[in-house]
């Protein structure tokens, strides 16, 4: 049996990783709500965020803030390119939704291959943002990076809420998620909003990747597991608002880390999928009920 200390420790770690899942989940929701598209390339943005941050920070020796900002901007730009060159042509030709979703999966594979060709398959990492640590609370150790994850994650969620609820463009994005035709009839450029949603999701994914990389590593292949866990979090949250997605992520992160302590690391994915199935069984629309009313 694991000790109480081990469990508490895993909860702390779970909140950290869960917040990252939550950010990825928000990315899924932003695109899904604006368009009905499930973007399976979401995880790849997380990987790219870590990769570009590594290049800027370690290879080019830029300061952290600059490297992080540049990485987010570059990855958001890649999100826009994906939308312009792959999603939009299919969208305008009225391709069936499953074809578009499959195309996002192809994008994931394509980008992974490009990363292998240009960066190799070596795992990379960079130091935590604040050196030293961990913080000891009795027997519980909390790495400093967790505070960065919590702080930046919370800040981003607050900013997103303000954006969606208080700005003209954010409101227009929400309008598209509720009724695209009505939005277009009022002069809201629905296509432009879709592009914006890709930029936003890619940027969010990148931020998640930049934050989490120091606690593990990044390599061409980390995108898929992050994507899957983010997707599960989004479903648990009900594919609705940003706070719901975030809550889904934290729930998944905590349950997953607790399960790793209890059952062993090999069960990580089994647990994630079990949580998903249980939630869907009892809350078919997700915990916060946003799923199924749309599209």
């Amino acid at each position: 049996m694991p000790s109480v200390v081990e469990l508490v420790q895993s909860l702390v770690n779970g909140v950290g990783i869960g917040l990252v899942y939550g950010l990825i989940a928000i990315g899924f929701c932003v695109i899904y709500n604006a368009s009905g598209i499930v973007n399976f390339a979401q995880g790849v943005f997380v990987m790219l965020g870590g990769m570009f941050a590594y290049s800027f920070l370690v290879t080019l020796k830029w300061p952290l803030a600059l490297a992080a900002a540049a990485s987010i901007i570059v990855v958001a730009g890649i999100g826009v390119l994906v939308q312009i060159f792959i999603i939009r042509p299919m969208w305008e030709r009225k391709a069936p939704m499953f074809a578009i979703i499959l195309a996002t999966l192809a994008v994931q594979l394509l980008i992974e291959q490009i990363v292998i060709l240009t960066m190799g398959d070596q795992p990379r990492t960079y130091p935590e943002f604040t050196l030293g640590g961990p913080l000891k609370l009795g027997p519980i150790a909390i790495g400093y990076q967790l505070f960065w994850v919590l702080g930046c994650g919370a800040l981003m969620v607050v900013l997103l809420q303000l954006f969606f609820n208080k700005t003209r463009v954010g409101r227009a994005l929400r309008a598209c998620s509720q009724n695209r035709e009505a939005a277009a009839l009022l002069g809201i450029p629905v296509g432009g909003m879709l592009m914006l949603s890709f930029a936003l999701s890619a940027g969010l994914g990148a931020a998640a990747g930049i934050l989490i990389t120091p606690t593990q590593y990044t390599a061409y292949s980390v995108g898929a597991p992050f994507g899957v866990n983010g997707f599960i979090s989004a479903i648990i949250g009900g594919f609705g608002s940003a706070p719901a997605a975030l809550a889904g992520g934290i729930l998944l992160g905590v349950v997953q880390s607790a399960a790793i302590v209890v059952f062993g690391a090999g069960y990580k994915n089994v647990i994630a999928l079990t949580v998903l199935l249980i939630v869907l069984l009892f809350f078919p629309k997700g915990l916060f009920g946003g799923l199924a009313k749309k599209h």
């Binding site: 409101r171 929400r174 309008a175 509720q178 009724n179 035709e181 009505a182 009839l185």
Partner: peptide, 8 residues
């Protein structure tokens, strides 16, 4: 059918 943004 009016096309309102129902949740807003």
């Amino acid at each position: 059918g009016r096309g309102l943004f129902g949740e807003m």
